[in-house]
């Protein structure tokens, strides 16, 4: 049972109160984008074994979307943060660097 802290209302929410929303920080590609860019936006996902940034909605709660940085292997949670951002905040990246010094990952 994944338990994530909702940064919007402050509740530590059970997975059963949450709805998953897939990979975070995707850039929307609209009309005029190349086929490659559109394919990347809509279909291509990294599915990493390790640190992952993802979207969650506190659907059975305050209803707000937020982001979570999580290890897909161990389910360690490095932090949750606002959905109104294009990249993970510094403190989340620092925490990941501290916890996973060997893991290098580029964030869009």
């Amino acid at each position: 049972m994944l338990i994530l802290h909702c940064p919007c209302c402050g509740i530590d929410a059970d997975e059963t109160e949450l709805t998953p929303g897939g990979t975070a920080h995707l850039k929307r590609e609209g009309p005029g984008s190349s086929d490659e860019a559109f394919e990347r936006y809509l279909f291509l996902r990294e599915n990493p074994r390790g640190v992952h940034f993802e979207r969650w909605r506190h659907a059975h709660g305050c209803g707000k979307w937020f982001h979570a940085a999580r290890c897909t292997m161990t389910l360690e949670v490095f932090g949750t943060y606002s959905a109104q951002t294009h990249a993970p905040p510094r403190e989340i990246l620092d925490r990941i660097a501290e916890r996973r010094p060997q893991e290098r990952r580029e964030v869009a």
């Binding site: 929307r28 707000k64 959905a83 109104q84």
Partner: peptide, 11 residues
């Protein structure tokens, strides 16, 4: 409704 909230909150 969730679809609309998603776009409004995250895009």
């Amino acid at each position: 409704h969730a679809h609309m909230e998603d776009w409004l909150q995250t895009e």
